[in-house]
């Protein structure tokens, strides 16, 4: 049962991650997952989701829009009940975090 729950959680997180690939960083033109801006997707079996993310630079005027977009895209995934998005700048994002 425990293993199955973890599998469901992992599946939900994976689907959320896939959904977030539609959200781009407007300056770089790449999706925020590939840029390494999503630090954590924590999805409970009841559909409560916590996403920890960053932006390429602190104080970016686009931050609010990107956070809103992440919340919206995550909420659109089937099985998601609520979404809490936390914007952090520790650890600080650096270009090495991008997927090749």
């Amino acid at each position: 049962m425990k293993a199955m729950t973890e599998e469901i959680e992992t599946d939900l997180a994976t689907r959320i991650r896939a959904g977030l690939q539609d959200v781009i960083d407007p300056e770089l033109g790449r999706d925020i997952v590939g840029l390494g801006l999503i630090y954590l997707i924590d999805a409970s079996d009841t559909g409560e989701v916590r996403i920890v993310m960053t932006t390429t630079t602190p104080g970016c005027p686009a931050s609010g829009f990107i956070v809103d977009a992440v919340r919206y895209a995550a909420q659109a995934v089937t099985g998601v009940f609520s979404v809490d998005v936390q914007l952090v700048h520790e650890p600080r994002w650096h270009p090495g975090m991008m997927e090749p």
Partner: peptide, 22 residues
Amino acid sequence: AFITWLEYYGPVLGRKPVPRIQ
């Protein structure tokens, strides 16, 4: 270009297809 993008496309980011700033 950056400010224009923020003003016009920022509010629909993640909801609709948006262009890059470039």
